[in-house]
Computed example of a mutant assay.
Amino acid sequence: MGRTLELTGTWLSYLLYAFQLTALALVLVFVVPALEYPVNVLLGGLFIVVMLASVVALWRRAAGRDGGNQLGTAEDITYDPFADPGQAARDRWEKAVRRLPGSDDEK
């Protein structure tokens, strides 16, 4: 009888956020107290901003408001209707249907 450990992508991303926040917190512990030079203050501020951005991103992901993947839309960076003949045919068909008389132009 074998035992398996299954980690989903969501849990792996949470684990990555935890490691990132831990590493940034450790850097802050060692950088911010050494306020000998103005560069250390700026570096500490930079790490605080990165930590806050990571916490906000984690919160948005946990709340389900990060937008998710928009695959197959114009916002998708991999969207290329010419690379997929089916997608190109669908785009041409939608354009042809929009040009038909009696279509709703108010939309």
Results as ranks from 00 to 15, higher is better:
Tyr14Gln: 05
Asp91Cys: 10
Thr78Ala: 11
Arg90Glu: 10
Leu46Ala: 09
Val56Ile: 14
Val39Pro: 02
Ala62Arg: 06
Tyr14Trp: 09
Arg98Phe: 10
Ala88Val: 00
Asp76Pro: 05
Val49Glu: 04
Val29Asp: 14
Glu106Gly: 14
Ile77Glu: 08
Arg99Lys: 14
Asn69Ala: 11
Met51Ile: 07
Ala83His: 03
Leu35Tyr: 09
Asp104Pro: 00
Phe47Glu: 01
Val39Asn: 04
Gly2Asn: 11
Phe19Ala: 07
Asp84Ser: 06
Lys95Val: 05
Gly72Ala: 08
Val32Asp: 05
Ala57Pro: 01
Arg60Asn: 01
Ser54Phe: 01
Ile77Asn: 10
Gln87Phe: 04
Asp84Met: 03
Ala88Pro: 03
Pro33Thr: 01
Val56Asp: 05
Met51Leu: 12
Gly72Arg: 06
Leu21Lys: 01
Leu35Trp: 06
Pro33Gly: 02
Ala63His: 02
Asp66Ser: 04
Arg90Ile: 11
Asp91Ile: 10
Asp80Met: 08
Pro85Ser: 07
Ala23Asp: 01
Arg92Ile: 09
Ala96Asp: 14
Glu94Trp: 13
Gly45Ile: 01
Arg99Thr: 08
Phe30Cys: 04
Val56Arg: 09
Val49Met: 13
Leu21Trp: 00
Pro101Cys: 00
Pro81Glu: 00
Val41Glu: 03
Gly86Tyr: 12
Phe30Val: 13
Tyr79Thr: 07
Pro38Leu: 02
Asp84Val: 04
Trp11Pro: 12
Tyr14Phe: 15
Ala89Lys: 06
Gly44Phe: 02
Thr73Ile: 01
Pro81Met: 04
Phe82Thr: 12
Trp11Asp: 15
Ala88Asp: 07
Met51Val: 10
Ala96Phe: 04
Gly44Ile: 00
Val50Ser: 04
Pro85Phe: 09
Trp93Glu: 13
Arg92Lys: 05
Ala88Arg: 08
Asp105Gln: 12
Thr22Leu: 13
Arg65Pro: 02
Val50Ala: 14
Gly68Cys: 12
Val32Ala: 12
Val55Ser: 01
Asn69Gly: 08
Leu7Asn: 05
Arg98Pro: 03
Leu35Gly: 08
Leu24Tyr: 13
Leu46Ile: 10
Leu28Arg: 05
Tyr17Thr: 02
Met51Asp: 08
Phe82Val: 10
Arg65Ser: 08
Ala74Pro: 09
Ser54Trp: 01
Leu7Ile: 11
Pro38Arg: 00
Asp76Glu: 08
Gly72Glu: 06
Ala63Ile: 00
Ile77Thr: 09
Glu6Gly: 14
Ala96Ile: 02
Asn40Phe: 11
Gly44Pro: 01
Asp80Ile: 09
Ser13Met: 15
Gly102Gln: 09
Arg90Ala: 13
Val49Ala: 15
Arg98Asp: 10
Leu42Gly: 07
Leu28His: 03
Val41Asp: 06
Ala89Trp: 04
Lys95Arg: 15
Pro38Tyr: 04
Val49Thr: 05
Gly45Leu: 04
Phe30Lys: 12
Leu26Asn: 09
Thr73Ser: 08
Gln87Trp: 03
Phe19Met: 08
Thr10Leu: 12
Tyr79Cys: 07
Ile48His: 02
Leu43Ser: 07
Ala18Asp: 10
Arg90Pro: 06
Trp59Gly: 08
Phe30His: 06
Trp11Lys: 13
Leu12Phe: 03
Leu15Ile: 13
Leu15Pro: 08
Pro33Met: 06
Ala34Phe: 13
Asn40Ala: 15
Trp59Asp: 09
Arg61Pro: 01
Ala57Ile: 00
